[in-house]
Simulated scan of single mutants.
Amino acid sequence: MLLDRPLLRRLFHLGALASRGMTLGVRGVALDGAGRVALVRHTYVSGWHLPGGGVERGEAVRDAMVREFREEAEIVPQGEPRLHALYRNVVAAPRDHVALFVLPAFTVLRPKAPDREVAECAFFALDALPEGTTRGTRARLREIHEGLPPDPNW
């Protein structure tokens, strides 16, 4: 078969990537002992969001989530983040997907200092989320808190 040749197989996959490219991101839910969730406010987009970002080339999804928790919220997992669901994020792009993780236990190393990407990071009670918390963030927290099935779309 023609696709058994390594170079042709590689070209086929590159062509598929170019014509059907997809982006993948991660978001994470970190609830502290008081039932408060970590949210971040970015410098480049409005609203409060769950910590997260893009998966880098060659990076495992789980590793991307651990990295984003540390970069955006100074959170270090104690144990494995649990994959909750995979969503299609049509608001960002037609082929964007988001893997949502729940972190059962963690340590906050220090308060997150503002930087070029994160203007603010704080913990909020689920019944007192800040004004500007995005619709997608509210929906994901409601699914987790109320044990609802995940919506396929972010």
Rank of each mutant, 00 (worst) to 15 (best):
D32G: 01
V90N: 07
I75K: 10
G136V: 01
V37D: 12
G15W: 01
T107W: 11
D63S: 12
P152Y: 06
F101D: 08
R41Q: 14
E74C: 15
G147R: 06
L100G: 06
P152M: 02
G28W: 01
V118S: 07
P149H: 02
S46T: 05
A139S: 14
L39R: 14
F106S: 12
L31W: 06
A122I: 07
G25N: 01
F12Y: 15
W48A: 01
H13A: 15
P152V: 03
E131K: 12
V98S: 11
L141Y: 08
H97W: 11
E74K: 14
E71G: 06
A64Q: 03
R95Q: 11
Y87A: 07
A93E: 13
G53N: 04
H97M: 13
G132K: 10
F123R: 03
P51A: 12
F124I: 10
E131D: 14
A85G: 10
R41F: 10
L83A: 13
L103D: 13
G132N: 06
R116T: 08
V91R: 14
D4W: 07
M22A: 10
G28E: 13
P6Y: 05
A139R: 15
A60I: 00
V61L: 02
V91Q: 13
I75P: 05
M22N: 09
H97S: 14
G147E: 07
E56W: 10
G54D: 09
E131M: 08
S46P: 02
A122R: 15
L126Q: 06
R110E: 09
R36H: 06
V40N: 08
R27P: 02
L39W: 14
W48D: 00
V76I: 12
L83P: 02
R142V: 13
